[in-house]
């Protein structure tokens, strides 16, 4: 059984991602297509919220990945700091813009949903506020990556920012709760008995969630591959420069 750490080698990672990326991309497309078709056309409208609730098939998976992308950045940053695997740092770099986009999708779909439901595009609700702040953390993280020229310095500093930022992002979540108790409904999915949701909703939602996870995997792999190629060309140029 090959160790996971083998894929810290860029060459092996490229070989693995070469087939894993298209496979997860195709699977993601299929799952999201089926999930959305099921959810939009086969699922009956909600008796209270009408058709508007169907935006959850985009909203919830995007929100899920917005948080998980940061969690993944946290793990890959730690791996970089502890074991100095370059692929790990580059995967964190690739995940940044994707997580930011997911956060933005969650915010925008939330606003579109909130307009007919709450009568307002935006409310300073703790969940909404936390997501907006999460988005700001993503922006800062991406900006720090792009501001530093030396790739290893950038990897180190963004990794520390990710660690410290995680603590403050969690603190912000609780601060937002303390600040305002909010309009947002509780978690839509619950593992506790007496679940509030019918399978005609849960089915497409689960499909879309798995689809978004796979979409995220495909996008991160694609992004990491781009970063590895950029580093490879940089290394080649450095070698040329040194030979000259």
């Amino acid at each position: 059984m090959a160790s996971l750490w083998e894929y810290a080698n860029p060459v092996k990672f490229m070989r693995l991602s070469n087939w894993l990326m298209p496979v997860s991309a195709v699977l993601a497309a299929a799952l999201i297509a089926v999930g959305l078709y099921w959810g939009f056309f086969l699922t009956p409208d909600d008796y209270r919220q009408g058709a508007t609730i169907k935006i959850i098939f985009l909203h919830v998976p995007a929100a899920l990945m917005a948080i998980n992308a940061w969690a993944m950045m946290l793990v890959t940053s730690l791996i970089w700091l502890i074991r100095r695997h370059h692929v790990s740092a580059l995967a964190a770099k690739a995940a940044g813009p994707i997580g930011a986009t997911m956060t933005l999708i969650a915010l925008i779909t939330g606003a579109i949903w909130g307009q007919p439901m709450w009568g307002t595009w935006w409310a300073w609700d703790p969940r909404l506020t936390s997501f907006l702040i999460l988005f700001l953390f993503y922006v800062g993280y991406i900006a720090l990556w792009s501001a530093i020229e030396d790739p290893d310095t950038a990897a180190d500093l963004t990794a520390v920012l990710c660690l410290v930022g995680s603590v403050f992002a969690v603190l912000s979540r609780y601060a937002a709760l303390f600040w305002n108790q909010g309009l947002h409904q509780g978690a839509s999915l619950s593992v506790a008995p007496g679940t509030r949701m019918d399978w005609s909703y849960k089915g497409p939602l689960y499909l879309c969630m798995i689809g978004f996870v796979l979409l995220f995997v495909a996008l991160v792999l694609a992004g990491t591959r781009t970063e590895i190629r950029a580093r490879r060309s940089r290394a080649l140029m450095t070698r040329e420069r040194a030979r000259a």
């Binding site: 702040i133 720090l144 501001a147 930022g165």
Partner: peptide, 30 residues
């Protein structure tokens, strides 16, 4: 400390620091 080596670090510094100021602001103003 994160932005010390950068030529125009000031703006980036605000972008990094302000989100982290949020809990302090909330509790202080509250």
């Amino acid at each position: 400390a994160l932005t010390v080596g950068l030529k125009r670090g000031g703006l980036l510094l605000s972008l990094l620091v302000l989100p982290m100021y949020m809990p302090t602001l909330v509790f202080g103003a509250q």
